[in-house]
């Protein structure tokens, strides 16, 4: 089982990298880009067959994401 964790800055916080990339996309002539947010993607290879979403949730809260500035989303997939 694999857990895919997507971490992004909370909405409303200035994402300086995202802003820069949006600027670059605009400059390249790509229309219709409203906003760009940059985040982290973490892949966790779990030993147990039945992955516990709660365990990954705890990982996120305790280490992977900083609740002051970040939010996260978890996807579980069979490897």
């Amino acid at each position: 089982m694999k857990a895919k964790v997507f971490i992004t800055l909370k909405p409303g916080l200035l994402d300086a990298q995202g802003k820069t990339i949006k600027g670059a996309l605009d400059a390249l002539g790509f229309r219709g880009v409203r906003d760009v947010r940059i985040g982290k993607y973490i892949e966790i290879d779990l030993t147990g067959g039945r992955a516990s979403r709660q365990a990954v949730e705890r990982m996120c809260r305790k280490l992977l994401a900083n609740p002051v500035i970040e939010q996260y989303r978890i996807e579980l997939v069979r490897s």
């Binding site: 800055l9 916080l13 300086a16 990298q17 820069t20 500035i69």
Partner: peptide, 9 residues
């Protein structure tokens, strides 16, 4: 609080 990347990157 928390720390983010410098606005100037």
């Amino acid at each position: 609080g928390a720390i983010l990347r410098n606005t100037g990157l």
